[in-house]
Write a protein that binds this DNA or RNA. Structure first.
Lengths: 153, 153
DNA sequence: TTGCATCTCGATAATAGTTCTCAATAACGA
DNA sequence: TCGTTATTGAGAACTATTATCGAGATGCAA
């Protein structure tokens, strides 16, 4: 058997099918909260804990890859549509990278069987860069998008 | 001026010096909590909020790079000693990678000025792989190290 | 060195993403 | 169909991180 995508013997439930379908349908990485909101609209809503459990299982299976774009939340995307991200340290803006910058990683490294990767490239976007040029301070010109968005909302 | 490492005009305080020195002294990436524990031992302890603020500033300056190894906490390491990580999806074990797998990223991408990157390679360690082979289930053989360590401690 | 504007610190409360608990339910092999 | 057992959902619990705010430290100009 291949262990590159270990076949986790898990039951094929309606919830897991719906969660995976929602990830497949998305064009970019989604948070657990994003999925929860989308799946809550249907006639049979899915609990948040179920979503977290399913995402964990999908990551272990190698179907889904987690990504961090610096806002404190994990995002999930289909491994088959793998892409990395470019993140602004000034304002927190992020965007997918068109091509992968990681050179062919060996399938085995230090005793590990490699199943995937996640790359995050840091930098400053055009607007934040201008703030740096003008004031020598990146952190004031464009404030980082806080995790605490809901306070303002 | 170079914006590759924007010079953030910040005051040179005892606390920030101590925090940076602790990061420099460490052989691997540290969490904010790690730094807090180390710096608390001294005659003039440093508050946790101060550590988070300093880390944020160092990341913006390009002195320090954040890393995620899948346990829900951000780890910080000296950018000058850059290295990426290999992470086991089974048990949560992680280790630094000896060589960087990222091909020379352009200094500018999509309007961003690039200052650094963080790569996380996923896989299964030898022990968890054995569990997969034996049972077809990676998630049971070796349980992921929970964020909730303190519950058990 | 002094004065002053303002940046920074520390303690702690607040926030929010994620995981845990547990009884009820659904899948699946026999 | 039946029995075993994984899974679900609601909500509580947990904890990493950020916000708040008064007190103190820093650095520039004079």
């Amino acid at each position: 058997m291949s262990v590159r995508h270990p076949v986790v013997r898990q039951r094929n439930t309606r919830q897991r099918g719906a969660i995976l379908a929602a990830i497949e349908a998305a064009s970019c990485h989604l948070t657990a909260e994003d999925l929860y909101r989308r799946l809550r609209r249907g006639p049979r809503p899915i609990g948040l804990a179920t979503i977290y459990r399913a995402l964990d299982a999908f990551v272990r299976e190698g179907l889904v890859e987690p990504a961090h774009v610096g806002d404190g939340r994990v995002r999930y995307g289909l491994a088959a549509k793998h892409h990395d991200h470019l993140v602004c340290l000034g304002c927190g803006a992020w965007r997918p990278l068109e091509r992968c910058l990681v050179i062919g990683a060996p399938r085995r490294m230090s005793g590990f069987v490699v199943t995937g990767h996640q790359l995050e490239v840091f930098g400053y976007c055009a607007r934040c860069r201008q703030s740096v040029d003008r004031r020598g301070v990146a952190s004031r010109g464009a404030r980082r998008v806080s995790r605490r968005r809901k306070v303002a909302a």
